[in-house]
């Protein structure tokens, strides 16, 4: 059973610890701008939503990649970008209907959540339990995945 990130926006205080931890894990710096998880604030900060890749089964990014730079990690279920293979064409960034794979101008490659190889640092850093790492069938992501399937041109088989 794969595990997934479970996100409970009700508990999010917008403290940005997840963004800092993500950026440090992947880029070696504490810089929210380089995070693969992003907090979106609504209603002038009264509401916040942590947002990142759901590792969806459709894997639009993976199928759109022209050079097989994105692959499935069988252990975690994460779709991972091989930086040395990615040419930076960005076609995955428009193919992903969630907008959760993004171009990094500094490296000329794309970045996305890789679940930190099975130990997601955003969840570890979240002080309020807004982000937890749990068995996949628990998560509200199922609903988002359902929504993903409505993105029409995808084959249903």
């Amino acid at each position: 059973m794969h595990k997934s990130l479970l996100i409970d926006p009700e508990k999010c205080t917008s403290c940005l610890q997840c963004e800092m931890a993500c950026s440090f894990e992947h880029e070696g710096v504490f810089n929210p701008a380089k995070s693969r998880i992003k907090i979106f604030e609504f209603e002038h900060g009264r509401r916040a939503i942590p947002y990142t890749c759901t590792q969806c089964a459709e894997a639009w990014c993976l199928y759109a990649c022209p050079v097989e730079a994105i692959s499935l990690n069988m252990e975690t279920g994460a779709k991972e970008v091989a930086e040395d293979v990615c040419v930076g064409c960005k076609v995955c960034t428009i193919a992903c209907p969630f907008g959760t794979i993004n171009y990094n101008q500094d490296t000329g490659k794309v970045i996305k959540c890789d679940l930190c190889g099975g130990d997601p640092q955003c969840a570890a850093a979240c002080p309020t339990g807004a982000i937890t790492y749990v068995d996949a069938d628990w998560t509200g992501y199922d609903r988002m995945r359902e929504w993903a399937q409505k993105t029409h041109s995808q084959p249903s088989a």
Partner: peptide, 15 residues
Amino acid sequence: LTQHVGVIRGLIQTR
């Protein structure tokens, strides 16, 4: 615009 552009596809294709 380079961040989260994919949502535009999402919004269009899910109607």
